[in-house]
Design a protein around this nucleic acid. Sequence first.
RNA 1: GGAGGGAUGGCUGAGUGGCUAAAAGCGCACGAUUCGAAAUCGUGUUUCCGGUAUUGCUGGAACGGGGGUUCGAAUCCCUCUCCCUCCGCCA
Length: 415
Amino acid sequence: MYNIRYVEEHIEKLKEISEKKGLSLDFQEFARLNEERKTLKGEVDELRRQKNEKGQKVGELKREGKDASHLIPELERLKEEITTKEKTLKQIQKKVTDFISWIPNRIHHSIKDEPVIIKESTKIKDFPFKPLTHIELGKSLGILDFECASHIAGSNFALYKGKGATLERALINFMLDLHMKRHGYTEIFPPFLVNEEAMFSTGQLPKMKDDMYITERDGLFLNPTAEVPLTNILANKILSMNSLPIKYCAYTACFRREAGSYGKETKGLLRIHQFNKVELVNFVHPEESYKTLEILLTEAESVLKLLSLPYRVVQLPLNDLSFASAKTYDIEVYAAGVDRWLEVSSVSNFEDFQAKRAQIRIKSEGETKHIHTLNASGVATPRLLIALIENLQTEKGEVEIPEPLIPYTGFEKID
RNA sequence: GGAGGGAUGGCUGAGUGGCUAAAAGCGCACGAUUCGAAAUCGUGUUUCCGGUAUUGCUGGAACGGGGGUUCGAAUCCCUCUCCCUCCGCCA
């Protein structure tokens, strides 16, 4: 969320960023409204000044035991005029701040027009047979039942069963332990439902509203990512310099309507309305954030490394960059059955964008300033599970559980 | 769901109608002292908006959110949110 004066002084620059991120915002209209706002603000302030001055006089006269009634009509008139003008001013002010809330975050200078593959891990292993998809394996092994899920909830929901459900749970616990014990995260178990303010702070609102599930009675949002509750833990706080960095990780179920997506992109576990994800959020000093971004990337990557899954890291191009992000790496895992690279993690630096919306600050050398926030999926399970069962399937149609996961599953293969 | 108590600056906490942007303490910043530090002393220390000008002056607004009473509200009334206590219900 930009400061109004900053917007006023950087219209061209912000217009350019908005366009690059695919938003056509009417900055001319903004400039017009803002001028109107300033004029009206001046008028209202002047009327208030007069009113305060006269009101004070009434007080003085009354204290001296004198009559002040001759001043009242003028005060009534001023009051009325202020009320009217202020109502208009408030409307304009709201329009202006609404407009500003739609301006996306700035873009880091390293961002290119095309995706850049930063690194590619182990090569994809050759199968001596045609690997099956997770949908086929899920059915034959009895561990995934999409038909059943759609009867209970609707299309594009998943139901995990037996060893499938256990494997899902094992993955979550494995990842949480990894980040907590090896990467120094504080584990959090937050609410899955969040309020509108929280959604606004992290930048999901206003832009992504159509993609959210909202509860009817209370107007609460089903969180689309643990980034929302985690980042909001520190909303409206002023932190001391030495409390940074703060690293929170959490598992939550994530809920997304995925409005507008359909077809084979959504088959099986590829894109579902409810999924599980372990999320990492970092709160850092502004000067540290790009260094932290690289660390976060390696922390997220380590999940795939430990499970020996083939993956690559892509630096997102301009037109894929999200509303709130200044720079993002995607981690994609290869899945042999569907023969595709699947996004399992987004690693982003939001710089001070979310911190400004959420008012997360530090006091440093007597001055308060906004910190930087970053997050990474560490990682999302549906596609991780796809990669796992598709890449580790045997010719007999069984799935071998990788070594580090066995203590969590309690079994070595799914058959 | 019912009854009561509460929400004030980075923190603790005073303040029941104008003299309060807000006491006091803590913290923090700068300076003095010191070889240096601690202690001590001094000064400063909320944010946003407008005007003017530039590191200042000036006007307005904000004491959980919204509304009301009043010439005038941190202070009185209503309402919402959150926290605490008690009762009820419940996994």
